[in-house]
Design a protein around this nucleic acid. Structure first.
Ligand SMILES: NC(=O)c1ccc[n+]([C@@H]2O[C@H](COP(=O)([O-])OP(=O)(O)OC[C@H]3O[C@@H](n4cnc5c(N)ncnc54)[C@H](O)[C@@H]3O)[C@@H](O)[C@H]2O)c1
Ligand SMILES: NC(=O)c1ccc[n+]([C@@H]2O[C@H](COP(=O)([O-])OP(=O)(O)OC[C@H]3O[C@@H](n4cnc5c(N)ncnc54)[C@H](O)[C@@H]3O)[C@@H](O)[C@H]2O)c1
Lengths: 210, 210
DNA sequence: ATTAAATTGTTATTTTATTAACAAAATTTT
DNA sequence: AAAATTTTGTTAATAAAATAACAATTTAAT
């Protein structure tokens, strides 16, 4: 398959989320404009994305939801699934563990890591918390490929180096400190303040233009 | 000023975050390539963004950090600041309150809302939690313009309608249920699973192409 | 049986975003 | 003093993403 646009990959994940929801409600088929409505985009965008992954719906019935879900799975997921570690079992880390665990069959939260004695060796939302010193050992043992960083900001760079050294292949960084990783490690960073400030900016703009 | 590209607005927020950090470390000036390194982008992108907001650095010294921070503030913030409500004081809501409160002088977390008797009338991270029935009253009293939704997913649509009715101007939705709002309300949605799946996809892709 | 309506799939066009190119100015080196 | 270097600011070019246009097909309506 030819290279999928980044934005298409993102949207496929979003489509699957709502498609799974439809399935849960007993819905079997869906039209491009229905998907579009669920995601604030145009039906053409939806059809184009679906075209790019080589799926074909049926005229008048639309897309078979289960087939589409399966195909998106083939694109995003690996057969065996990937194991994920949460680094820093604080407020956000714990919230994430409970949110993510069990949500996707091919993403397993395999371990948490912390430095605080009170947290180490406890279980949070079904996930074992290890001491950060055991990172490399557990990453290897559990075949963890992805890490989510939710430690204090000033630990971020150090943690990211440990993760790279341990052989992690992808990092999702929720701390406000940007990090640098080698090319073979995929990095995604997100800061909630930026989302909030984006909202603030457009609210301000709208009030001015009205 | 002419319309700023969406992406520029996002980056300005990110620049400010790291610039504030530089200031805190006593740094006074910064070059475009330094900002670029902190955000995994090119120096040209940085200069272009800064050009768009009409700021001019000095050759050989770069940008005056304080001036740049102030100017970004003039763009993103309002003079009086905006008040924010967090709807749903669960795991994520509480994490957010403690994270956001006091981080930006022009964004004040003015109230939390929940439906659970145990949470109502308590204070979390300095923020008073009210019953959701008091939404409209408090939104008006505290002049709240922005809401962050962190309730269970099946409450999302109902909550968003209440928010619109209460006069909220911008919504940041962290639940996995997309919502629909009128044009005059700015909506931003984010799902952590999509970020995680994006990482998963690119990790998979990288392992294949190596 | 014909026409109209709905819907997909795909190419073409437009818009938005990023990157490249380079002139201008300040500083440093020779 | 002249040449080289560094860095900004801006326009031009390219790339990526979104939208529009429309043919093709199926079903429904007349
Ligand atoms: N709370 C939020 O909603 C939120 C939102 C966005 C970003 N963040 C960021 O996420 C990070 C975590 O936020 P939080 O509110 O959960 O903070 P927190 O203090 O509650 O949690 C941090 C956890 O990391 C652990 N830790 C510290 N050093 C460590 C190390 N070297 N190795 C492993 N674990 C270590 C601490 O023991 C603690 O359990 C912060 O950087 C924060 O800025 C938080
Ligand atoms: N926990 C995470 O890291 C995470 C990450 C991404 C998204 N989310 C989403 O964020 C939402 C909250 O997650 P959580 O883990 O904090 O859940 P939670 O159950 O801990 O918190 C939900 C809170 O909302 C309150 N609530 C319920 N109905 C309400 C109503 N009608 N009005 C006001 N408050 C109401 C509940 O009393 C509870 O306090 C969920 O939709 C979840 O899918 C969570």
């Amino acid at each position: 398959m030819k290279k999928l646009p980044d934005k298409t990959v993102e949207r496929l994940s979003q489509y699957r989320r709502s498609l799974l929801n439809c399935l849960a409600n007993g819905k079997k088929h869906i039209f491009s404009h229905e998907i579009a409505n669920l995601h604030h985009i145009t039906p053409v965008q939806v059809r184009r994305d679906i075209m790019l992954i080589g799926y074909t719906g049926t005229l008048r019935k639309g897309y078979d939801i289960q087939e589409l879900v399966d195909l998106i799975g083939e694109i995003i997921d690996t057969d065996e699934g990937q194991n994920v570690a949460i680094i820093g079992i604080g407020n956000l880390g714990r919230a994430l563990v409970t949110y993510l665990q069990g949500k996707r069959s091919k993403l397993r939260i395999a371990a948490g890591f912390d430095i605080n004695k009170d947290k180490v060796d406890r279980v949070y939302g079904g996930v074992q918390c290890y001491h950060i010193d055991q990172l490399e050992e557990i990453v290897k043992k559990e075949n963890i490929t992805i890490a989510v960083i939710t430690t204090p900001a000033d630990e971020t760079q150090k943690i990211s180096e440990m993760l790279v050294k341990a052989g992690i292949r992808g990092i999702l960084n929720y701390t406000p400190t940007a990090i640098n990783v080698p090319d073979h490690v995929y990095l995604e960073e997100y800061d909630m303040i930026t989302s909030l400030e984006k909202v603030a900016f457009f609210v301000k703009k709208n009030s001015l233009t009205v």
